[in-house]
Design a protein around this nucleic acid. Structure first.
Lengths: 348, 348
DNA sequence: CCTTCGAGTCGAAGCGCTTCGATAACGGGG
DNA sequence: CCCCGTTATCGAAGCGCTTCGACTCGAAGG
């Protein structure tokens, strides 16, 4: 193994000079720098990560805590992870993979042993047991998702409130007057998930602004439940012409249930989905949708982390604006003129 | 930060004794051990990973090289990753996540900087550029998949030859006499993928053993290509009653094409798929299938790695036996008595 | 002309841990 | 009773790097 003293000898300088060439923390004359860099290349020198971590108390590794078997759409998670790794590498950091199951002990372990400098925690719940720990750990961290008590923590996610609103706007621009949000199963609203409520809030508020009739209906998984939900919806709102579906597993069954109820998409019913683009594109009628921008979330979270590591101030909350992609499942409300303001709707 | 000298002082022993309690590399009296362990717990001591790595030249981290954006079924990759992380943790190791894109430089980097002790490399191609590097790196590694020149490398994968054979056996037991393997697109066979050929070889050999008529047909992705393949297959083999599909993206289109051609599954045609269980279960007619045992591959690869790290000898090749799960898509050939040997077919 | 300052370099002191003798205490065989 | 082999423990020497203070040298300022 070639070490810093070998490089130093070969370049005719002291080890500390080599170190300063590498870190840039002190000025080095151009001539020396070049000699050192040549020696490094020639010898194929790579600093020993452990030694470096010990001396500098920086490991240049960030932990990524992933829900490795959860229900969240897995390709989206992958995209996120890929983006985290790529961005971290761009900042000269590596990524240590932790599973959700390791839990609080795992976080404490990697933090206390100085294995990592910082943490990215995915899939944060409203009342997440890890929150107090993260506060006390003394390592910079970024959370994907917003817990109930987010003050002092750095959190990032899609802006679900704006997403709910954006879907309504889109339908409003198409002339729809009566819309519904088909959301997660009831237990999700009750449970620890902030995004469901925020979407609903944005949806409802926007509908009120537009003077539209709106409902929010939870929807259990499974085809029978979907049929039931649809039946009830159409019974209670016979003039419904637009729905927003924020429930990935129920999406297919719901669409089928609408079809079975005699509604064609988009002629009789416009549908906006909150789901990955692949899913929206793959549907029988390609769906107008808002996707979770996983790659961007990953990149931004690492950027935030690096800023914190550099001692810079970062905002507590980062909300990414929704991007609605118009596809075939939404159309102007039949027999109604499009509103005069109707324009392109955000598909970029 | 609490360090080993703190523990030593608190327990009234020397730092080296604490170290030996932790590592078990020298005998320690029960009394001393207990005092030390109590101090460790009391102070919440965690060895500094960097210091440990420096002194012991062991980082207790393994690298996992993943194709983070590839075409392989993503949930299967996730399952694999989860299994690797969990198993590694059980051996007191952590997992560093690398992307395929980091390539050879990435491997060299983490190896030379002693960031990791060992490597798990997924998605190994027949002529993988990383093979020579892995040989020269001096770190233990395990490859998922078999390169052309595997001698001296530790490789593990599903036994695709046996898989091809097992599918044929299943069909044979059901009385089928004329079968086809619908495989990957032509370029995959030409290109760098060992498993496609091995499946085909096992398939063909088994068919010969059973005295069956058999064909292997590549299949391009997309519905039109699927229809074309099916048309050709039925034209050339009018008495075909069983097919094995080893091509995940083409699976749906192929099934549709068969239906369109007037063949009902399983009444007119028995279908065996090589695909994840979820996909097989989710099909209109649940498919008899052989799944890639991702969790087991992950666990076994880490076990192999740990054995190598411990200096034990391990087999070069580990081939996991296929597990065929019988579902609704295969049935006895119509108007033909089941073979007398017909029994339960391997669904466990 | 002497001081001051910054740029550039070096030497040495650790960072927290492991590990290799060395040492001591203690039985047991000759 | 002495020597030897265990067993249990300690002290010290690093592991390879970063970083801090100190030093030198030349240029700029008074």
């Amino acid at each position: 193994m070639v070490k810093i003293t070998d490089v130093a000898r070969s370049a005719g300088v002291s080890p500390s000079t080599v170190s300063y060439v590498l870190s840039g923390k002190r000025s080095i004359s151009a001539a020396t720098r070049q000699r050192v860099e040549a020696s490094i290349r020639e010898l194929g020198y790579r600093p020993h990560a452990g030694a470096r971590a010990l001396a500098s108390s920086r490991s240049n590794v960030v932990a990524l805590v992933m829900p490795l078997r959860s229900g969240v759409h897995v390709p989206v998670q992958m995209q996120f992870a890929a983006s985290v790794v790529t961005t971290a590498r761009a900042h000269d950091h590596d990524v240590l993979l932790l599973t959700q199951e390791e839990g609080e002990d795992g976080l404490r372990r990697v933090a206390d042993s100085a294995l990592v400098d910082a943490l990215v925690v995915m899939d944060v719940q409203l009342h997440d047991a890890r929150i107090p720990l993260l506060r006390s750990l003394g390592l910079p961290s970024v959370l994907i998702g917003f817990p109930a008590e987010a003050a002092g923590l750095t959190c990032i996610d899609l802006d679900f409130t704006a997403t709910g609103a954006e879907c309504v706007s889109h339908l409003a621009r198409l002339g729809h007057r009566c819309v519904a949000l088909l959301g997660s199963p009831p237990e999700v609203y009750a449970r620890d998930t902030g995004y469901a409520r925020r979407t609903a809030a944005g949806f409802t508020a926007a509908a009120r602004r537009y003077g539209m009739t709106s409902t929010v209906l939870p929807c259990a998984p499974g085809a029978p439940a979907a049929r039931e939900t649809v039946d009830r919806l159409l019974r209670e709102h016979p003039d419904l012409t637009g729905v927003v579906v924020h429930n990935e597993p129920a999406l297919g069954p719901l669409l089928e249930a609408f079809q079975r109820a005699g509604l064609r998409v988009p002629e009789d019913l416009s549908v906006v989905a909150l789901c990955p683009d692949e899913l929206a594109e793959g549907a029988d009628v390609p769906l107008t949708s808002v996707a979770l921008p996983a790659a961007e979330v990953g990149e931004r979270s690492v950027d935030l982390l690096m800023a914190k590591l550099a001692g810079r101030e970062v905002p507590d909350a980062t909300l990414l604006p929704p991007q609605l992609t118009e596809r075939a499942s939404t159309a102007p409300r039949a027999h109604v003129n499009r509103l005069p303001t109707s324009t392109d709707c955000g598909a970029r």
